[in-house]
């Protein structure tokens, strides 16, 4: 109990204080307000001042970061919107907070359901940002957004997101999650390729069959 322990502890804080000056001096202007500076302050080597000057510089969010969900639409050649959502309802079934509502569109003539959502709501006052909807969506239609600056003055007006507010273009999705987007597009391309190949093969088989089997009609009857 002679106070050396406290002094040693104070030496640690003193060294950390010195570190801030040394580090500022060493890195100079690059330390703040540059991408490199922010990256350094996120890395395991960081020393000295750790603060991110929020509104001026933002901490970059990683690709997997998730906040509230949004819906992706593809842009057609003439700029028309093509919803990816088919109103299959899987997101409503996995949602732990049950904050998603989908009204499936129906064909006005027949009254049969069509694979399109008429209305789509997400109550972000219930959403727990868990990302299960995005994970299990088979059409890559619902995704988790990166935009966290959503504070409002009136939740009753602003916080039940309707389709208008949820829909965002695929290009936006490609921008916030480039790796995921590339992977999904690649998978889609491959699936299409496989489909095309299968179709081609089938066509070839049919053609071959046409050649070998003399009366094709009869064959059909047999089978």
């Amino acid at each position: 109990m002679d106070g050396t322990g406290i002094l040693k502890g104070l030496a640690v804080t003193f060294k950390r204080m010195l570190d801030t000056y040394i580090d500022d001096f060493k890195r100079g202007k690059k330390r703040y307000y540059t991408e490199e500076g922010i990256r350094y302050r996120q890395s395991a080597e960081v020393k000295g001042i750790f603060t991110v000057q929020y509104p001026e510089e933002k901490l970059p969010v990683p690709e997997e970061f998730r906040f509230v969900p949004f819906l992706v639409y593809d842009e057609g050649p003439n700029g028309e919107r093509k919803d990816r959502c088919t109103a299959c309802g899987i997101c409503t079934k996995v949602c732990p907070a049950q904050c998603i509502w989908i009204k499936r569109a129906t064909n006005p003539k027949t009254g049969r359901p069509v694979p399109r959502s008429e209305e789509f709501y997400i109550d972000i006052d219930m959403c727990m940002n868990c990302g299960l909807c995005a994970e299990y969506c088979p059409f890559d239609s619902i995704k988790m957004d990166h935009d966290y600056e959503l504070a409002t003055y009136d939740r009753h007006k602003d916080n039940i997101l309707n389709k208008e507010r949820l829909l965002k273009p695929a290009s936006y999705y490609a921008q916030i999650r480039p790796l995921n987007y590339a992977r999904e597009e690649e998978a889609k391309r491959q699936a299409e390729e496989a489909k095309r190949k299968a179709a081609e093969a089938r066509a070839k088989r049919m053609a071959a069959r046409k050649k070998t089997a003399t009366p094709p009609k009869k064959k059909d009857n047999e089978s």
């Binding site: 933002k58 906040f67 600056e149 504070a151 409002t152 003055y153 939740r155």
Partner: peptide
């Protein structure tokens, strides 16, 4: 279900939980 049933709320910050930057954004609001 919402503290605004009892107290007047000035700013709502969505998110579960809001990240620190989202909180600062709300405080700036």
């Amino acid at each position: 279900s919402g503290i605004d049933k009892y107290l007047p709320v000035d700013v709502y910050i969505p998110g579960c939980p809001p990240t620190p930057q989202a909180l600062i954004y709300g405080l700036m609001k």
